[in-house]
Design a protein around this nucleic acid. Structure first.
Lengths: 216, 216
DNA sequence: ACCTGAACACCGTTCAAGT
DNA sequence: ACCTGAACACCGTTCAAGT
């Protein structure tokens, strides 16, 4: 396409170069500063320095803005899973441990976004295809670890999707219990979460290991 | 007035026998009918047939009403965990499978309440001591299963809290992924969830099993 | 003691109007 | 095309007033 922009056919935006991005960014910050319930479109607009109706030029409604934030979260998660894979190119067991640790760390760094992604706030149908796509990408990272482990015969055989789900569930459950503050006082939220993630991922790994002959 | 009090000690409430309970009950129903974001105190009052300020006689604010609902959820969860234990009095492995299945089923029956309990909506400090107490009770159920398993030498040794957390995390993660609609299309939400819960609990059980001598 | 209605400060969203 | 301000229907919460 002929995208030659001369000075006169660049329609200078009213006030901003990229209001879409600015809104998204400001919303993400406000979300983490408080919580999901108290995030208001009007406050976001105010922070950006624009009238409270301006966001409607760029987002259909508040939910659609939330979906945009969640998508960024899934993208970052997918990136972390990918890095977990490449950090131990030939050891699926270590990949899984690394993935679990990164999953938890990311969530602790942006707990409100994590609640937004997994708290059932956004519709789970195909209202936001890009959101679904990004979420699936993150799951693919985990799945590839399981697949490699099965190929190397260090993980037991079986439906890849289901085993990947089992691994995901363990890590995901730990993560949400941590950021939700649902752990009993004894565990609470330790300064070093590594021991906890280790216990969970080790248990998972043992459960995923290639089966030996059963004892009973 | 015709307000003749037969039992002179009992001051008949204005309109209701137990407005506290009625509000709590109506709120729980409205919560599941829609979702947590769209639950309004005014709608609850309307449903009960009372002015929109009446609930403030019985609940400090909206959050405190939500805490009341969440407490009911934890109580029911604790009851289910207890029943899982007594359904297989001498088999911790079966207890754990049963507990996992009941955990998922309960959440699928009241997904919005589950999100309220674990979605980080309520403060995790000691603002609602009864809430914390009920939550701890549910965790105790799980812990007792792990303890018995360790005593019988069918589960591996180690910190009980941490192992219980690992088990909890697996079940919890599966549950939240299911009700959050975060699973990829292939898994989505099946008519019969038993295969999924079985895969997860079986993986957990393998990981919790008393260790054999390590292969490598 | 328990409930009501008006009042206030906040929302999300729509729409005619401005540049 | 992009943004504004008034307007509307909804909130949570407070408070003086009613019974």
């Amino acid at each position: 396409m002929s995208n030659v922009k001369t000075a006169k056919d660049i329609p200078k935006p009213y006030h901003h170069g990229d209001l879409y991005q600015e809104i998204l960014c400001a919303a993400r910050e406000l979300l983490e500063e408080n919580n999901i319930a108290s995030l208001s479109l009007r406050a976001v607009a105010k922070k950006v320095g624009v009238s409270h109706t301006a966001p409607y030029r760029h987002f259909k409604d508040k939910e659609s803005l939330l979906a945009g934030i969640a998508k960024l979260g899934y993208d970052e998660l997918a990136r972390q899973m990918q890095e977990a894979v490449s950090s131990h190119p030939n050891d699926p067991a270590l990949q899984l441990k690394e993935a679990g640790h990164r999953y938890v760390l990311l969530a602790l760094n942006s707990p409100q976004c994590t609640q937004l992604m997994f708290g059932g706030i956004l519709p789970c149908d195909d209202t936001y295809p890009e959101l679904r796509a990004s979420a699936d990408m993150a799951f693919e990272g985990l799945k590839s670890i399981i697949e490699k482990g099965q190929g190397d015969d260090v993980f037991k055989q079986g439906d890849v999707e289901e085993l990947a789900l089992a691994a995901w569930a363990g890590i995901h459950g730990l993560t949400l219990l941590l950021i939700g503050g649902n752990l009993p006082d004894i565990l609470s939220i330790p300064a070093d979460i590594r021991p906890l993630t280790n216990t969970v991922t080790t248990t998972l790994l043992e459960g995923l290991k290639a089966q030996r002959v059963k004892g009973s």
